[in-house]
Design a protein around this nucleic acid. Structure first.
Lengths: 337, 337
DNA sequence: CTGTTAGCGCTTTCAC
DNA sequence: GTGAAAGCGCTAACAG
């Protein structure tokens, strides 16, 4: 069923039908109602290609997910919850949300280039940003509005929303220092993720500010998984003078960390204070409850959606939002032994 | 840059350029090369709307993911790995893959109806099928080729690919019975998922075949999470005569089950034999290693892709594929106490 | 208030 | 081997 068929069924011209469907003025209320009813009854929805071609826009927001990235495969599917919330807001503004999986075997930049050139979306949201991310240069040189969920080091003048990693690490380090910890280890992601850069810089600043020794060996590159958490804890415990606290950048590492501590006959909070970035549902399963940030995931999704709408409408100033990472301390944190 | 611009830049007509780009005959090799080179240099990709409108197809496969469903949020993002593999195969055949998140606050059937009517994809893959799923009726009454990842009870005459739940439960029950277990509990999903129906029926058949008592109380409805696994184990242990084995339908439940056993001072394999459906990377973290199926996830993704291509090309017979669930026994399974 | 028509970018006949 | 032109479904400008 296309608009021509609908018009014929109603004995109207396609122009009138189109205007009725699109809430344009100059259509009598009676006609509008008749058209809308018929559209529902006959199951008519405007063909996406025809409409997009004519309008020059798709009413679609594309979220590019790196399906090869560990982040995307995270615990309770952080991204799925974000997208669920984004979609709510976008739908309320007449936009569809599609996810474009950027295949692990392909080149992310070439993928993005193709999306942009083909005009598949009115705005693109990218994720899993790298410290030096060629996608940003590409996006900035093009004409497709975009939002970056995550920052990069190379450019600064674009709309982004990111977790407040700095605030998280500051609060964690401050709380630990207040309890008397001096040797505090942190984990950073293994790849060239921008998060690693942020955490390293913040760590250095924290140490300077709090008067702690800045031992580069306390910054541990860890695999983004339970295994990474376990490996880091084992490696730290093997030292002559292990640190007394550990801040994890990825929640699933906490499982590994707890497990490695238990294997060594040690207890979180008592023998090693542990803090992790994001509280996921699964984390609640750990005993004692691990100190973590209670991030408003739905709010984050809604914010990503409204900021996307802003870049579409070229509203200024563009986003530069660090999403709150409020830390809740628990008994996984205690004074140093 | 559109085809008109590209043609002008080359001093050719748009017709010739189009034919060159689409590998049509009646274009000289020299011209073809010139066009292809210019397209790359100028970053030209055919506008998706224009091409789809003219061709009447989008060269796109849409996977509808229920973002509200717990399944989608599973452990190591099972779905993301499947989609990653699907995309590889589809891309090799000139198709794009898009994910359409079906919002938790919307009506899945209405969502699907809209996608179908708008012609957003040449084929639709649905997931998270229910025992009685209205989406199937809708899809079968429409003209969009589709593949169901999961079965339903209501209709049988459509292309589907699903995990071999029956084979899994048979092998698990057989192995347990061989060891002397007679009271074997299983979990089933809490909603009206089709998996629950399959597991219940298979369980009954297994009990009859293996000469085991068929106690309905041994079929436990469990929440799709670690918490569900813990709750079931606690509930079973509280009985006067607890079962000696438990088969879980979702891998994350194993964490909860192990935890609840440990809390009770009991050990998996010794006090309660445990088998779970799918081995995920995270599971390897449990001690002892839990008995589970080593599913070829990438192969499953490739199969979903090739079956999707089959329905697009209306090749027969249509799929009815139970994807292998090869069970690996470990020391989480032992003789009954 | 409604009908007619041009044209979005592209592919595919049909001429030459 | 190439160019001209029609038309996919739709919206928007214009006529009436």
């Amino acid at each position: 069923m296309n608009i021509k068929g609908l018009a014929q069924a109603l004995g109207l011209s396609i122009g009138t039908v189109s205007r009725a469907l699109n809430d344009k003025p100059d259509v009598s209320e009676a006609t509008r109602k008749r058209v809308l009813d018929a559209a529902v009854k006959l199951g008519y929805s405007a063909n996406a290609s025809g409409r997009s071609l004519r309008r020059g826009r798709t009413q679609t927001v594309a979220v590019v997910l790196e399906t090869g990235q560990a982040d995307v495969r995270a615990g309770d599917a952080f991204f799925m919850r974000i997208i669920d919330a984004m979609q709510d807001t976008l739908a309320a503004h007449g936009y569809d949300l599609i996810i474009l999986p950027s295949n692990s075997s392909g080149d992310p930049t070439a993928f993005l280039k193709r999306i942009m050139a083909r005009g598949m979306a009115d705005a693109i949201v990218i994720t899993a940003t790298l410290a030096d991310d060629p996608r940003l240069k590409l996006l900035m040189s093009g004409h497709v509005p975009f939002l970056s969920f995550g920052r990069t080091q190379t450019t600064r003048d674009y709309a982004w929303v990111d977790l407040d990693f700095e605030g998280f690490l500051w609060r964690a380090m401050q709380a630990l220092a207040d309890l008397g910890h001096r040797d505090i280890a942190i984990t950073v992601p293994p790849n060239n993720s921008n998060i690693a850069v942020i955490l390293r810089e913040t760590y250095e600043a924290c140490c300077a500010q709090l008067g702690l020794p800045h031992d580069p060996d306390l910054v541990q590159v860890a695999e983004h998984s339970e295994f990474g958490g376990a490996a880091v804890v084992r490696s730290l415990l093997a030292r002559p003078h292990p640190p007394t606290a550990l801040v994890l950048n990825y929640e699933m590492m906490a499982f590994g960390a707890y497990s490695a501590l238990r294997d060594a006959g040690l207890a979180p909070g008592r023998d090693l204070s542990l803090i992790t970035l994001r509280r996921s549902r699964q984390l609640r399963f750990l005993e004692p409850v691990v100190a973590a940030c209670d991030i408003d995931v739905e709010g984050l999704g809604r914010t990503l959606a409204t900021e996307t709408l802003r870049v579409i409408h070229a509203q200024h100033p563009s986003a530069a939002i660090r999403w709150p990472t409020p830390l809740t301390l628990t008994s996984s944190v205690g004074p140093p032994r």
